Amino acid sequence: MYDTIPFSHGIILMYSITSRISFQDISRTCRQLPLNAKTDPRLVLVLVGTKNDDDLAREVSTEEGTALAQGLGCKGFFETSAKRGENVDVAVLAMVQALRKAESERKIGFSTPLKLIAGVKSYFRTTG
């Protein structure tokens, strides 16, 4: 599904809370590629609204950001301020944790049954 970005394990989608157009671009891009973690379990998405320090110029509500993140199956949604250093580290850390979790689930999902089968075969060889 996300063969258009073949070497990506995770994507941080960013828009400015002061720009409705940037928010709409995220939604449009996700539909066109398509990028949706609900329909593609291999994909890890985090949505970030930037410029949280400029609330007077806000054009996109927190509720709209939350709804988009939920609709895309994002592993996190954060509003950040680079100017104040607010939630930037938290957003990146959320991506890292989501990637680690996805990787561990892939290992468990694929290799654990094979290890179990190998263990059962080994048991029957030694007892049979």
Rank of each mutant, 00 (worst) to 15 (best):
L99H: 07
Q32F: 09
Y2R: 14
M1T: 07
L114C: 07
G71A: 08
L45W: 11
F110A: 07
V46M: 01
N36E: 13
A94H: 03
P34S: 09
I17T: 00
A98V: 11
P113G: 03
A37P: 07
V88W: 00
E63Q: 13
G109P: 12
Q70A: 13
A94Y: 02
Y2L: 10
K38H: 14
S16E: 02
I17F: 00
L72E: 15
G65I: 02
V88I: 02
T18H: 00
M14A: 12
R100L: 05
F124D: 03
L116I: 11
P6W: 09
G128L: 13
K101H: 15
R20D: 04
F110K: 15
T112I: 07
F23K: 11
S27I: 05
D3H: 09
T66D: 14
L13D: 05
F124V: 10
T127K: 15
P34G: 07
T29P: 03
S22D: 12
G73I: 04
F110W: 12
P113K: 02
Y2E: 09
G128T: 10
E86D: 08
K51M: 01
M95S: 10
Q97A: 08
T80W: 03
D25E: 14
V92L: 12
P34Y: 08
G85P: 04
V92E: 03
S122Y: 06
G128V: 07
G85Y: 01
V92T: 02
F78R: 04
L99Y: 07
A98H: 06
D53Y: 01
F78C: 06
A69L: 05
Q24N: 09
D3Q: 09
R42D: 14
P41W: 10
S81Q: 04
I21Q: 15
R20C: 05
